[in-house]
Design a protein around this nucleic acid. Structure first.
Lengths: 197, 197, 197, 197
DNA sequence: AATGAATGAGTTTTCATTCAT
DNA sequence: AATGAATGAAAACTCATTCAT
């Protein structure tokens, strides 16, 4: 059996990821106000000072974590959609992708929700995340040119697709209802009714 | 003979309110993770120990603040709607009420958003807040019996009314767009398309 | 017997002084690089956080301590000297005062020496301390007008009075020699030779 | 056959010197209490662990640095003075040498001042540095035998030569006055008045 | 020889809360 | 009721040093 030793003394992706995972878990368990670098370190099985080998400070770590998770979600949402995809099919795929991501990645999703609603996010320069948004704008524009989608602000159309899925998922997580295939069908219909021209 | 003491109760509503206001302001400025009892006290112009005259501890204070604000918002949302109100008119009033509350009470609203998305809320026993929800359920039920609203879970219908307004308001606060009367008209139409049978 | 309780819950001069004394002692024992707020607190028999009731932060505390000690020394140096004192008598009193202060207040003196030679002092805005210097300048000026003192920069004359005393005291503390009355007589003569016109 | 390796010793004098320079600079910029091995390493463009190749630990490094700089200064002070030099000429050369060294090597000088006034220096066994002192003692003795210098403790005579120069230089660095040739002449006269028999 | 990663022990400071009045 | 002082516990972060290569 051959063991490849990569340079063990170089920055370790596992540790980076362990810190990210620990942070997300704790954030969802105890919230922004109660996480601390030492709790994160304990959960990640590293020394608190090790976190500072990988990140400048708490803010830097949270920012990088946010961008990392945001990218994961954005990629998944648009998976399989391109400039050829018919509008309604693309819309349905988006709803389905989003539902899958959210239900499969409860931790990621709840982390993003918490982060997005905290004033913390304003302190960061997160224009980079806007990049993920561009393809959606293009898609919406195409739908409007083809007179399929209502001619309103793209943000508005998006709201009618994003929140039904995510808020339903939240109720699902709370136990208030079950987000099954039937529910997805229902909101796909309702959202379509809302956005179609 | 009846004597009205201006200051009949010992606890002073002004101070209570000052603490609430200070907390909301700070929460929106610096977020959950950075507020502290002494910062709140300083902002409210009281001593830190005074807060403990009015509340058991930090958690108790936040909980009471949440319920207080939540009630304000709930009352406003349903203002003018009763069991006689026609369904579509009630729906439109709800949208309009919600928009007014959110735009007029940015601080209250953002505080609620932040609070609602934090795991903190689960630690509290907040069944009481469900009380505010009952009239909405009744209204939805009536709309469904009259075959005006889609026969889906009430939460679902509500999502299509609540989030378009609130998320549009957030974009408005961010400066991404302007939430004017026209935008309200647009989403009122879109939401109605979504929920009507 | 009557005991006057001053308000025990108000800031306590004893504590302030205890913190100052602890800082001076530690500074002289282990130096700038090794003092810490917790060591100071332990030595002063208070909690580390108590220091922050009395001072904004470490820098603020050190600054206030410096000004406090500097004032003590300045007052002592000029004790008994006024605008009527004959020049030579004033000079001799200065030398004697300085010797007394330094030998009687080893801790204060060594603290000042250390502080004065650290770049820390530049970060502080310590123009206030210059106030103590004014009477000396006036005295020198008078001596020059009367053609008793050499007509050179006042700083220069002062150097020839201050350092012989203080550096001799340092040798005394080190054990290299004994700073007795005879030595004082010697340097009083030498310094006078240096500064007289 | 003899081969000269340019890099014959393994330890690299450049790196040693880089570490020394970095330490001196930082010490003068931020002071004893704020330097750290990693800051020094960064400034010297080496890894923190490299410092431990050259020195046992922080204390060892500072000690060696001190002795290194102390030697530089001592050599310069006595430059051109030997057992034949006439007393007054030797005295004047000393003053001039000292002025040159201090003004030309602000960093070295301020470092020494800071170091000398810290209790750190007592923890070190620095008897070695006394070696540099011997020639001065001999010179003073000779001056006293020739009835040129006052018959007082050599330290005392030295104080009247050393501090006028160095303290004037400090005022110069602070910007309070300019240490030019004229000032040197003035203090050379004053010091001579003080020490001559 | 040289170094980047790693860390336990330490740093300064703030926290929620209680005490004494 | 109201409060300034006080504090143990914990926060974020840095330290000198060692490890593995």
């Amino acid at each position: 059996m051959i063991v490849y030793y990569t340079d063990m003394r170089h920055k370790d992706d596992n540790k980076n990821e362990a810190i990210f995972q620990a942070t997300i878990q704790l954030l969802n368990e105890i919230g922004f106000s109660d996480i601390s670098m030492s709790k994160i370190a304990k959960r990640a099985n590293v020394s608190p000072s090790t976190i500072y080998v990988y990140f400048e400070n708490k803010e830097d770590m949270l920012k990088k974590l946010y961008l990392n998770v945001k990218e994961k979600m954005s990629l998944k949402m648009l998976d399989g959609i391109n400039e050829m995809t018919p509008i309604q099919a693309g819309f349905e795929l988006f709803m389905s992708n989003l539902k899958d991501f959210v239900l499969d990645n409860k931790d990621y999703f709840l982390f993003l929700e918490q982060f997005t609603n905290s004033p913390f996010i304003e302190r960061l320069c997160l224009d980079e995340s806007i990049g993920y948004f561009k393809p959606i704008l293009d898609f919406v524009e195409r739908g409007q040119e083809q007179h399929i989608l209502k001619k309103v602000d793209a943000h508005l159309l998006l709201i009618y697709c994003y929140y039904p899925v995510t808020q339903l998922a939240k109720e699902h997580f709370k136990g208030t209802l079950v987000f099954n295939q039937e529910k997805l069908k229902e909101i796909t219909q309702m959202s379509w009714d809302a956005i179609q021209a």
